[in-house]
């Protein structure tokens, strides 16, 4: 949508409340790419209300695991704490938006009276960024596991090279052969070698 690339309100004040720094920056980056320049990230848990009063945001995103969501909810009731009342989606037609947001794990609070089509495009962006972050996290976990496995294999090779005077290639071939014979992964065999060596030390 052309509108997303050239938002009509680039100065819209957006606040992201998330203890997860990486996820917050994924969302912040997405908003900046979409042309929103006035984005603030708050990570600390204490004193949220005071920060909000200072920043006077028009849109707030908060991760669903954040207990401070209940602090934001109070603003529906006590508008004197901030400049004006903030409402989430108070209209039945917003049910789909809430569902998408809750599934992605993001809560959104919006200043009353902000145009609905604008809210929708920003929320869609937040939902897709939260989902993208989830994917990224899964990939990172996988990459970290792969890295850990490689380290174990390196250590096992080193032990075999030293204890049995093998070349690096021969040590690796021995690990691979044991893994095939036992129907296990090389990293598992390598872990056994490392554990055994530490017991025998």
């Amino acid at each position: 949508m052309q509108d997303d690339k050239h938002p009509k309100e680039p100065s819209l004040r957006i606040l992201i409340v998330d203890q997860n720094a990486m996820r917050a920056s994924v969302l912040e980056e997405g908003l900046r790419e979409a042309g929103y320049c006035n984005v603030t990230v708050v990570r600390e848990m204490q004193n949220l209300l005071r920060r909000i009063a200072e920043l006077d945001p028009e849109v707030i995103f908060i991760d669903l695991e954040n207990p401070n969501r209940d602090v934001l909810e109070q603003m529906f009731q006590v508008s004197r704490c901030v400049g004006r009342p903030i409402a989430m989606f108070v209209d039945r037609s917003d049910a789909d938006m809430i569902e998408a947001a809750v599934d992605a794990g993001v809560g959104a609070y919006v200043v009353d009276g902000l145009r609905k089509d604008r809210i929708k495009s920003i929320l869609d962006l937040a939902v897709s960024r939260f989902n993208a972050f989830d994917k990224l996290r899964t990939e990172l976990d996988r990459a970290r596991t792969a890295l850990d496995e490689r380290k174990v294999v390196e250590r096992a090779k080193g032990i075999l090279m030293k204890e049995r005077s093998l070349s690096e290639d021969a040590a690796y071939a021995l690990l691979r052969k044991a893994a095939m014979n036992e129907n296990r992964r090389i990293s598992e065999v390598a872990q056994s070698v490392v554990t055994a060596a530490s017991l025998l030390r």
């Binding site: 669903l64 401070n68 969501r69 909810e73 809430i98 569902e99 599934d103 809560g107």
Partner: peptide, 15 residues
């Protein structure tokens, strides 16, 4: 859960 707001929202969407 960590907030009452999330309890309500997750009830509403059927989680």
């Amino acid at each position: 859960e960590s907030s009452w707001a999330s309890i309500r929202d997750r009830l509403i969407v059927g989680h």
